[in-house]
Design a protein around this nucleic acid. Structure first.
Lengths: 203, 203
DNA sequence: GTCTATATGGCGATAGAC
DNA sequence: GTCTATCGCCATATAGAC
C-alpha cells in the first residue's frame, strides 16, 4: 500500500465512474475504462477482480448519494413547507452535480433488482421511517387529499425524471439547444417548489 | 410473401418486442429472441439483416405509441382541466398496457440520442405545436405562475417516472409487495389529476 | 424459407516476464 | 505493481445444404 497504489486505484475508480455512469454495465468496456485511467486492462483485474466487482463499488458509491439528504431534513425542526423546499434544494444540487445518476441507477436496478435490498441493508436505510415522518407532518398541516406515498413519488418524479429524460426533453422543448435546456433546468427548482406548494397548501 | 412468411415475421417481431423491451439493446441476445420466437438464429438475419435493424423496427413501433395521445386531445373542444384529465387517462392506460416502455425508451435514447430527431421527422411531429396550444389554453385560464414547458414536464414526470422506477419504488414503498404496488399505481391516476388541478387552479 | 455448421470479431480474464 | 501476449468464450453474422 504505497503512495503509488492509492493513486492508481483512485484513477481507476474515477475512470470507472465516468464510463459506467454514462454507458451502464452492459455498455461499458473494460478497455475504455483502462484507457480513461491511462493504464492497462490487466491492471483493472489486479485491483478489482472482475468487471462486476468494479461495477459494484461504483454503484454503491452512486447509490449512497441519494439517501442521506432526505433523512436529516425530515428530522430537523422546521415546518413541512420549509422541509419540502429544502429537500428540493438538496436534490437539485445533487442532480446538477451528477446528472447521469438517475438513468444510471434506473438502468442497473432494472438489470438486477435484488441489489437494492442489499444496498438498503448495507446502509441501514428504512424507507418506511421516512414515510411515517412525512405522514405525521401532513396530519399536522391538515393535508388529507393525498397520501404520503403519492406525495413522495410526486416529489421524486418532478425532481428526477427531467434528468433521466434529458435528451428527449432537450429536443422536445428546445430543439436540442443545450444552453436553453440548462437554463430551463436551473429555473426549474423554483417552479417545482411552487407547484408542490400550490398542490398541497392552497385548499 | 406467402401466409407462412407473414406469420414468421410476426412471430419474430413479437419475440423481439418482448426481449428488447425488458433487456434493452445491449442486454438482449439474438439467441434469446430466436428461442422466444421458436425459430433459428439464422432466420432472424434472413428477415432483418442485423440486430440493429431488428431493434430499430421495435423502437420505432414503441416510440409511435407515445405521440398521438397528446395531439388530438389538445386539439379537441374542451376546457383545459378536461384536457389535462383526458391526457392523464390516456397516458396511464398506455403505460399500464406497456409498463416497460418508459425505461426502454429512456435507455435507448441515451445510447443513441440522434435517433430521436429521425423519429420526429419520420412521423412529422412538431413538439413546439403542442407547447403553443398548451400556452394558449393557459392564457385563457389566466395561469401565469408556471410556463407551458414546465407544466408539460411536470405532467410527463408524474405519469412516466413511477413506471421507469418501478423496482425502486416497489421496495421503498411496499417492501417489494407486488400487489400493493399495483394497487398504488391504479389509484395513482386520480391523485395525479388532483395534484395537477390543485397546483394550477387553486389560486 | 428454414435449418446446421462455421466464420469472425470482440471482450473479460489470466499467464508470465520485468 | 505494471506491462505484453494470449486464452477462452460468447455473440453477431454468414455459408451452404435441404
Amino acid at each position: 500500500m504505497t503512495e503509488l497504489d492509492i493513486t492508481t486505484e483512485a484513477q481507476i475508480i474515477q475512470a470507472a465512474r465516468k464510463v459506467f455512469l454514462v454507458k451502464g454495465f452492459e455498455g461499458a468496456r473494460m478497455q475504455e475504462i483502462a484507457d480513461e485511467a491511462g493504464i492497462n486492462k490487466a491492471l483493472l483485474h489486479y485491483y478489482f477482480r472482475s468487471k462486476e466487482k468494479l461495477f459494484q463499488s461504483i454503484f454503491q458509491e452512486a447509490f449512497q448519494r441519494f439517501i442521506p439528504s432526505l433523512y436529516d431534513v425530515m428530522l430537523s425542526e422546521r415546518t413541512l413547507p420549509e422541509k419540502l423546499d429544502l429537500i428540493i434544494d438538496r436534490y437539485q444540487e445533487l442532480l446538477f452535480e451528477n446528472p447521469y445518476l438517475p438513468q444510471f441507477i434506473l438502468q442497473e436496478v432494472n438489470r438486477n433488482p435484488e441489489c437494492l435490498k442489499t444496498m438498503f441493508q448495507k446502509f441501514g436505510v428504512q424507507p418506511s421511517t421516512f414515510i411515517s415522518f412525512l405522514e405525521k407532518e401532513m396530519t399536522k398541516e391538515g393535508i388529507t387529499h393525498i397520501t404520503p406515498q403519492h406525495l413522495l413519488v410526486n416529489i421524486l418524479s418532478l425532481n428526477i425524471f427531467p434528468f433521466a429524460a434529458k435528451p428527449i426533453l432537450s429536443i422536445i422543448l428546445f430543439n436540442n439547444n443545450k444552453d436553453e435546456y440548462l437554463e430551463f433546468m436551473k429555473e426549474r427548482k423554483e417552479y417545482i417548489k411552487l407547484f408542490i406548494h400550490n398542490a398541497l397548501f392552497k385548499s
